[in-house]
Design a protein around this nucleic acid. Structure first.
Lengths: 139, 139
DNA sequence: TTATTAGTCTATCTTTTTTATAGGTTTTAT
DNA sequence: ATAAAACCTATAAAAAAGATAGACTAATAA
């Protein structure tokens, strides 16, 4: 399961995408709209900003905004940033690979193979679906 | 990612499946073979037994064994038992559903829809692949 | 029938991760 | 200047994961 952090991030990003034309959006507005602790959300948005996904403006009239159009922000990127690996096992992770401690040879491990396929099927969706795709259904 | 518990379970089950014809297998043998803490593994095998996946025999000549042939034990079942939901979000989980606290209407939520598809693509593999499929590659 | 073997059960403990909060600092518009 | 709003760092609280301990029960063999 995705962490709350990542879940909140998605909801916040959706809100930002839905209000792309309204200039910077307040953390407090997002927090209220999406029912998220404002202080927790603050940290999350900051992390997204440091990763180059969001931009911000301080002071009056400030807030957060997307650095790119929604259709260029893939869901996989957000998950990897905040949650880490998408794969079910370290030994099949593309971005967070770790050697398997429990099997002799990954190249012959059937579990490794199946989990690799699960990873691929998830990535096929998560790398191609973007913020734009989760704005409203049937679009 | 799957927990260590589930990862260990898979490796242990593979070992049991590979030695199906040798009668009950000792916890200690599996622990040594797969490099797992024996006491931790003990708990895991017990849980698998209580779920009807394994059987056991006490005393000399005792140990654990599969209750069904490897090809009848789906990977999804093991994951759900030890790790819980396979879905990435509570609101798209078939077995551990929870209402989304952050969106107005799941029926119209695009995130819900995409994550539902990720779940389906993972389940398509995990419900159909069995212990038998992870014994050796290319079989 | 006793000793040994091996799983059963339950409790606890430690560590890590997750979730959340607190409070001061900096920047910017007015 | 002042008020608004993000920035930053630290910490705390709670939950989950990972691991261990030890007494108990059942089965087997001598």
């Amino acid at each position: 399961m995705l962490s709350k952090k990542t879940q909140y991030a998605f909801h916040a990003l959706v809100h930002l995408a839905e209000n792309v034309d309204k200039g910077p959006i307040l953390i407090s507005e997002i927090a209220q709209e999406k029912n998220i602790s404002i202080k927790f959300l603050e940290n999350i948005l900051l992390e997204l900003k440091n990763a180059g996904i969001l931009g911000s403006k301080k002071g009056k009239g400030g807030g957060y905004y997307l650095m790119r159009p929604p259709k260029e922000i893939a869901l996989a990127k957000i998950i990897r940033l905040l949650d880490g690996p998408i794969a079910l096992l370290p030994c099949v992770s593309l971005n967070y690979y770790e050697r398997c401690e429990n099997c002799r040879d990954e190249a012959v491990c059937g579990l490794n193979e199946v989990m690799g396929r699960v990873r691929d099927s998830a990535l096929k969706i998560l790398e191609n679906k973007t913020l734009k795709d989760i704005l409203t259904r049937n679009s």
